[in-house]
Amino acid sequence: MLEIKNLHVEVDGKEILHGIDLSLAAGEVHAVMGPNGSGKSTLAYVLAGRDGYAVTKGEILFQGKDLAAMSPEERAREGVFLGFQYPVEIPGVSGLSFLKAAVNEVRKHRGIKELDAMEFLKFVRAKLKMLEMGDDLLKRPINVGFSGGEKKRVEVLQMAVLEPRLAIMDETDSGLDIDALKIVSSGINALRGLDRSMLVITHYQRLLGYVVPDKVHILSGGRIVRSGGKELALELEEKGYAVLGADAA
């Protein structure tokens, strides 16, 4: 599904990622952990194609295609989804009309019939139900005035609606209360499947108790310093980053 090879990334002329290797097979869930400033969001952004995140060396293959050569919208249509650590507030654009436009772009790209307003509403309602959410947030302008937790829940909803092949969730668990964490986790679990891979960036073992990863990678100083099974997250929780040979931020 995703092959990252010796990936070097520069932001504003400064190298942030110094050679990342990561291979995520179809259906797998990998967790990425690491201290503040270690480059987790940078990795997420470069996968999603944010301007200013330059790949200076190495490559990213997504389903065999060169991801770095695609625009952000092409990646999204191909099935890459980034759940933002800090979802952006967009005044004046209603969440519903935005999501409908997004869904239909993806469907058009996949050669599936676009949804009309009624079909879309039905489709979204089912996803809202799965995540135990009302539709009030979607009627408002995108993320405007949402609480931190509400923003994260809407990110997960968007993922559920867009049905990506690769979901990168950047600290989606931060800011969620305990109940919301359970609901969101079961939502994420419901979306796990043989043709969907996930890269879950988190600081907390708690999420990984619900969304059990196939692998855990520790990022530090722009490098993956250790990879292992789900026990690695537990070990980390107990001993902190320093013990693992990762420089604390």
Binding site: A48, G49, R50, D51, S71, P72, E73, R75, A76, R77, F81, L82, F84, P87, V88, I90, V93, F98, L99, A101, A102, E105, V106, H109, I142, Q158, L162
Partner: peptide, 10 residues
């Protein structure tokens, strides 16, 4: 970027 990251063209 947020809009484009959801598949909406530039």
């Amino acid at each position: 970027f947020y809009l484009r990251a959801r598949g909406i063209g530039l």
